[in-house]
């Protein structure tokens, strides 16, 4: 499901079937890393959307959690944890962070939830078919992680 009024209606009717949330973590930065942060956003968004399309009925793709690359890490963690708390209270047991920002990989331990870190692949020069194929392949791998967690629970 996506964060859109149509999907929310379905969500409210079948809450018990939806137990997984994905939060895309998208960095924002002007200056030297402006291009990097934009392609990170592109990539994570594509991956997130494809995953949502395949697992529409059980997975909630949330609006992206955006932050400045220079943002103070204390406040950043605090903000993120309050998102997670809200989701857990809502009954979404599995929370995943989806990002291409390597900054999160270093702090994976502090996150408390599963980090799906996909190193960014620059896609702006690829043709559409090839891009689609790559995204599909990547999403397949993500599936393994998510499905495995589901089978455990």
């Amino acid at each position: 499901m996506k964060w859109s009024s149509g999907d929310i209606t379905v969500y409210q009717q079948s809450k018990e079937f939806v137990d997984t949330a994905i939060i895309p973590l998208l960095p924002l930065s002007f200056g030297a890393s402006i291009r990097t942060s934009a392609s990170m956003a592109d990539y994570a968004t594509l991956i997130g959307e494809e995953t949502e399309r395949q697992l529409h009925g059980r997975l909630f793709l949330l609006p992206p959690f955006t932050y400045l690359m220079e943002e103070d890490s204390e406040t950043l963690m605090f903000r993120l944890h309050s998102w997670v708390k809200e989701l857990k209270d809502e009954g979404l047991r599995h929370v995943y962070f989806l990002t291409s920002d390597p900054g999160w990989k270093k702090r994976e331990q502090e996150l408390g939830e599963t980090l799906l870190w996909m190193p960014v692949i620059p896609m702006e020069t690829m043709d559409a078919d090839y891009r689609e194929e790559i995204v599909k392949e990547q999403v397949k791998q993500l599936f393994q992680v998510i499905l495995h967690k589901w089978q455990e629970s």
Partner: peptide, 26 residues
């Protein structure tokens, strides 16, 4: 598209029930 909540189904991926379409969500 699964008629339950719209996940994408796959063919023959559930080892316990071969030769069926299987929805990984529920």
């Amino acid at each position: 598209v699964c008629k339950h909540l719209g996940c994408t189904i796959d063919w023959n991926t559930d080892p316990a029930h071969p030769n069926q379409f299987y929805c990984p969500c529920h």
